[in-house]
Design a protein around this nucleic acid. Sequence first.
DNA 1: GGGGGCAGAGAGAGCGCTCTCCGGGTGCTA
DNA 2: TAGCACCCGGAGAGCGCTCTCTCTGCCCCC
Lengths: 348, 348
Amino acid sequence: MARSTGGGRPPTLEQVAEFAGVSRATVSRVINAVPTVDPSIRENVERAIAAIGYVPNIAARSLVNRRTDSVALVISEPGSRHYDADFLNRIFTDPYFGRLTAGAQEVLRPQGVHLVIIPADAPAHHQVLRYLRQGHVDGVLLISSHVADPLPRQVTDLHVPAVLSARPGQPIPISFVDTDQRAGARLAAEHLLARGRRRVATIAGPQDMPAGEDRLSGFRSALAAHGIHDVPAVPGDFTQASGEAAARDLLARHPDVDGLFVASDLMAVGALRTLAELGKRVPEDIAVVGFDDSSAALACRPQLTTIRQPVEEMAGEMARLLLASIREPGHLARSVIFNSTLVERESA
Amino acid sequence: MARSTGGGRPPTLEQVAEFAGVSRATVSRVINAVPTVDPSIRENVERAIAAIGYVPNIAARSLVNRRTDSVALVISEPGSRHYDADFLNRIFTDPYFGRLTAGAQEVLRPQGVHLVIIPADAPAHHQVLRYLRQGHVDGVLLISSHVADPLPRQVTDLHVPAVLSARPGQPIPISFVDTDQRAGARLAAEHLLARGRRRVATIAGPQDMPAGEDRLSGFRSALAAHGIHDVPAVPGDFTQASGEAAARDLLARHPDVDGLFVASDLMAVGALRTLAELGKRVPEDIAVVGFDDSSAALACRPQLTTIRQPVEEMAGEMARLLLASIREPGHLARSVIFNSTLVERESA
DNA sequence: GGGGGCAGAGAGAGCGCTCTCCGGGTGCTA
DNA sequence: TAGCACCCGGAGAGCGCTCTCTCTGCCCCC
């Protein structure tokens, strides 16, 4: 297992070839599992590789193939008002990203493709784009859920294979994976109805985000199908604080609400806090359904009934789409839409 | 901003040189900010670069320099009993890793060094080692807290510059950064005593991790110095759920406990939940001190009094040590030990 | 037994960049 | 005005790998 002498350079193909008494090309064939190599020579070369402790130099290899066999999972945050530390704290506090990573790994690992995670808050966007342009990776799984995020467009402009984690805010030619948000909202509506709630209302997401918009319209149209047309809605911005405020606002205007759909778990947790303050029991007085099945849904009391998206499967599909577009250049942008399910816990 | 025609190859140095009417070498000098270039030529070349949309090919560059200007943050998990998904869930649920990343970024970003995060559960160790050996990165920030973790040794055997996040389980020649865990636990013990608590107990961390071990022994020896020798201890695994269970277990056996040291905030939050369920008031009936000063310490009620490690500063120091050993090969392994402090909030 | 076919190994030309030499031009000094 | 530094740009040799093309040699068939 002698790595070449001391602090010297790592061994090269050339040295393996010399050691094994064959040419560079043959060693290369062995390493790349080209079948037209005589078994005895193959074995001989393999012994030489082991003896010398040879590892291919990835720079030299990818200079020729233009492949690195690794892809990046870029987690983007457009907001400029956030500090780096806040952003990272949010990432490393939300199990969503762990599920995403697990789903992608499941597909990439068996293919021998490395996954590296890159947090990209707004001030770092420039550096991340540089990283991608330089060709460190073959493609990008881009996690970005804000409409105003410029990164998806910038990444597609790079002509680096990329797949987005949600329908892009603006129409750009990029593959993406998403859930049917409207259908998810319908599940929530039907669950509330099944619980006998009729005076239902919603705390919506921002109406300039696809997710916010679709969850509201899906909820309303599901209720309309059951003859309920008057559905109070107060918008929030997906933060816990906005959920608290929205709930306060809503109950001030509609004190008799008995069923509430909140467009994100984080806002739902805020709403629960308000409801507790107002002395409303959940689910007895008001049934609450969240959205996301985030860790907040489990951490709060009562635990949230919520709409779960198949995040792992989605991430796996993202990885598959990405590999396809890496391996078949000229591959057209495609999108895949998943269904979500209702997870019943205590709040409704 | 014309990137070379259509789906063709990205522009090369050569093309920029031709466009600007200079040699490759000069373009290279401009890009690498070599001072001995005439300003007018420099400007001319810069215009050409912008016009053509040139970006250096990192593979070609690092084939020559043997530098990639990026480092990996590898988060290791030795246990083979854990599934990938569990492991990732733990990472993306524990704010510790976010603080670590933020601290490292703070140092690396101004240096133009990219940081990529690589989760490494046991089954992936092999692949991660391959990634490192291939030379994708210049060095490794290795996060590993289990004594039995083989990764630190394997990484040092690779002769890739590396810095470890804690004292290595076995003595291996690697730089590391750590806090004085025992001293931290002593702070907790003395705080509980100062609060008049005498029937103290602890929810410990896993005893196969130096951190778990040191926090327990430090806590015990501090109490012993005050004549308290009988200290009930129940081990957890640093997760919230284990904290809940451990607290239940502990109070069933020692219902009169009035002071509790929990070896991590996450477990402490779990313990608080159990205490609330059992009708114990905190801090009146039981004073609770956590460890880590994670965001969970602020999010829970009552807010946790806890031991704060300067995680960001530690990660920054790790990054500095790593850069030093990348830039000065033959650099000797060094270690830096930080102090922790007690953050007094509501729970004790 | 000779020729065609084919399996399988080697030679060699790059991939795009950096960096060491060199050499030409400029300006200063004697 | 000749000589000489010195400054700066160019030429060219690789870095370690892949891959096409070439060539050798063996087998098979007529």
